[in-house]
Structure formats: structure tokens, C-alpha cells
Design a protein around this nucleic acid. Structure first.
Lengths: 173, 173
DNA sequence: TATTGTTATACTCTATAACTATA
DNA sequence: TATAGTTATAGAGTATAACAATA
């Protein structure tokens, strides 16, 4: 298809607005000197960039086990809290309960997790790792540690510790 | 459905290292006593929880202007770098160029952004804010600051400053 | 040949609403 | 009535691949 923004006024990039403080004059390719303006003052922007980097590394590092971050967190919490209900797991991890259903479906299909009938409430399921799930989790944890070492290598050990402390404070009050 | 009820051994075991501490004041209450295991040692987990909280507050605070975080970042960077190419913008913000097309489509439809012909490279577009876009950005910045104050209130001013410093180091260092 | 913007597809994740079976 | 799990849908966001125009 042809350019969909058809006409495109050919007013070259000549400076018009009062809002732009920076060059555009310098011949258009501002390779790395792009001004982020107020973004660097927003925790949300920096946190997003951090998550992007971290999750990509996690997925790459655990690709051989085909485990993604959300699945890792689910297996970890079930492993530590056998018999947990889905609702409790969902709100603990900040995952929508509707989404957790699909995560558990996949983990159950892979034979890593079991939904058992709850003794006390027949509406709910008690979540357990299978023997295979426990073995898998052990292998996962090796690679997850390796991944975290990549993060440490990226930010430095001291900064990593500081970030864990500060973000924990943030996340849990 | 499933086999019998679990042995239901003590599901708690919450003595381990810095698991879950307190319920969350502003919104979701984490079920107390659920052991997060190694998750609290993973920056990725904490960063995700932080982003969840921050983005939800941003979206809520700027709902009246119908501006989401990605759109805010795009408008901000164009405002500061008039004439920027789409590729440069995309790689600056860590947005896929294919996704940026849709973001710009929407902002252009709303009359906030213009794609102009580049003087030097006829493949590329020079991005500019319209007058309306500049006015809108000014209003957006007021609410974005308000949002950031919510974040400060959540973590404390000192911690907020520390986090900005450490995460900037992470994202760009 | 490589790059820019575009279109297209697939998959992950978030956010709701509604349904069922229990409580 | 309310809650736990499920199903369904819509919309962001990420990740690729391919294509036309241009470099």
C-alpha cells in the first residue's frame, strides 16, 4: 500500500513550536541525544524500562524450561503454601483470578500442579505441586538464580540490594 | 473431579525471610501469612508489583484526559524533540515500531500530533506536536505531576528520590 | 542490500461481566 | 446475598514477519 497518510504537507521540519527546546536543527538524526524531558522524573517510566529488561532476560534464561515469570511466581508460592486457594494465590500475586485459571490450566496440563478438592469449602480448590512439579521447580530455581545474577551484573550488587529493599517497601507498604 | 482432600499439612510456614509483611493500605489486601518464598529476592517480581500500582494510579489520575502512560511518554518526547523520526522515538522509548504506528495514529486522529515529510529522508516522517497537542500536553503535565505526588506519598520523598537515582542507573547505566 | 513506516498475526496480560455451584 | 472458580470478550502491550518505497 502507498503511504496511508497521503498528502503530508511538505513543510520541512522547520521549527515552529515554542515547546521544543532542542535541536531538530542538527540535521534530524538525533541518534542518542534524545531529550526525555520530564520522564526521568517519573518512577513509572523507569520502572517500566527496568521490567522490560528484567523480564526479557528472565524469559531468555528460562526458555529451555519454557517457564515465564508469572508461571514461576505461581509455582513458587504454591510450593511454599500447599493447599492454598486460587483466590488467595491470585490476590497475593496481583493476578486476576480469571487469568490465574488459564495459568493453572497450563501448569496442570504439564503435570506440575494439581487442583484438589478443599476439605472445608467445596467451591474452592486446594492447590498442590505434583512430585514432577517439585522436581521442575528445583530446576527452575537454578535458572532463576542465574537470571538474578544477570540483574546483579547489570546494576551492581550494592544497588541490587538497595533496590530490593526500596521496592519491597514500595510494594508491601 | 480430583482425588481426596490434601493432607493439608500446615500451609503456613511463614517464618522465612521477609515474606509478606502487612496488608496493603491503598487497595488490594494481600492475604497475610502467604509465603512468597524466593520471590522477594527477585527484582523482577518487585518491579512488576511497583509498575502495577504506579500505572493503575497514572491511568486513574489522567482518565479525565484519556491519556495512558505510553501516550504520555510519546507526547513528552515529541514535544522536546520536534522533527524526531518514528524509529528514533520507538527505540528511545523501548516501544516496537509497529506498535508506535498505532499510538501515533490515535494521537494524530485526536489532532495532537502531526507526521510531516522529512526534508532529508523521504522514507521517514518528522513528528511534531500541533498547537492543540502542546496545549494538551500542558494540561497532561499538571495531572502527571499530581500522579507522581501520589507515588511520593506512597513511598516517601527520600525513597522516591533514591529509587529514581537507582533505576535510572539501571535503565541507562 | 538495508532501513522506514506500515500491515498483519499470534501470544501475553489486564480488566470486566456473566454464569455455576456452592456458602 | 455473597464468594470461588470458570468462561468469554475487549483492549493493551510484546514479538515477529512481510511488504512498498526509499536509501
Amino acid at each position: 500500500m502507498s503511504p496511508r497518510t497521503a498528502p503530508l504537507t511538505r513543510t520541512a521540519a522547520l521549527e515552529v513550536d515554542g515547546g521544543s527546546r532542542r535541536a531538530d536543527a542538527a540535521g534530524e538524526d538525533l541518534p542518542r541525544g534524545v531529550d526525555l524531558g520530564g520522564l526521568t522524573g517519573h518512577l513509572g517510566y523507569l520502572v517500566r524500562r527496568a521490567q522490560l529488561w528484567i523480564f526479557q532476560d528472565f524469559i531468555r534464561t528460562l526458555a529451555i524450561l519454557d517457564i515465564r515469570p508469572a508461571e514461576y511466581s505461581v509455582l513458587t508460592v504454591i510450593g511454599r503454601n500447599a493447599g492454598l486457594k486460587q483466590m488467595a494465590l491470585a490476590s497475593t500475586l496481583g493476578i486476576e483470578r480469571a487469568r490465574l485459571v488459564h495459568l493453572l490450566d497450563r501448569l496442570e496440563r504439564r503435570g506440575l500442579v494439581q487442583r484438589r478438592a478443599s476439605a472445608t469449602d467445596r467451591r474452592s480448590h486446594a492447590l498442590h505441586l505434583t512430585a514432577k512439579g517439585r522436581k521442575m521447580l528445583a530446576r527452575i530455581e537454578v535458572l532463576a538464580s542465574e537470571h538474578e545474577q544477570h540483574v546483579v551484573a547489570r546494576v551492581g550488587g550494592e544497588h541490587h540490594k538497595e533496590l530490593l529493599r526500596l521496592l519491597a517497601l514500595f510494594a508491601f507498604g
